[in-house]
Amino acid sequence: MTLPDGALLGALTIVFTLWLLASIPNQFRWEWWDNTARRDVLALLPRWTFFAPRPGRHDLHILIRDWSAGSPGQWRELERRPPAPWLRAFWNPDRFVRKTVTDTGNALIRAAARPEAGSSTSIQLHAAYLEILGWVVAAPPPVQDTSPGDARQFVLVRTQTARPGRRLDVAFISFEHPRL
């Protein structure tokens, strides 16, 4: 069985050339290109900068607490399940969750830092805020609590290293959200 190679070869040459040429501007953060690349819904245009030029040197954690009758409960971390270090080279299912948490958290921190954000409550309408709030609200109450609380609040905390005495940088504090 033979495919019509002449026409197919020409078409493939055009496709691969365009794909490669479009991959080049995608390595830069040019606004004019980003607007075009946003239409790449299947994420076919790669970005190969990997940890550069500004590598993430922090872990981002989402901490939540419940409020009951006007009193705050203890902060606790939204569940994370990093695999055993010796296993990670072959098995790391947590990476999908961690990447989403980090990207969404950083998007919220960047949005809150913009001058126009100010002290406005409009940050609550930001897509990243709503997304994180969805995870936070769905998290089960702490095992020791019989009452789920009246409201829930979250903070985004950055840490570096896994040492017990590590420094915690609070990067964002949410509003308190009544539980329905």
Binding site: Q27, W48, T49, F50, F51, A52, P53, R54, P55, G56, R57, H58, D59, P82, R98, T102, Q160, T161, A162
Partner: peptide, 28 residues
């Protein structure tokens, strides 16, 4: 090439603090 050049133009990669910082995290 892109990954190498992006690191080459980065001060924190050139002075080594970037790599130490990344490896200090739990995630990466």
């Amino acid at each position: 090439s892109t990954s190498g050049i992006a690191k080459l133009v980065s001060p924190v990669w050139r002075d080594g603090t970037g790599l130490a910082g990344i490896l200090s995290t739990i995630d990466h």
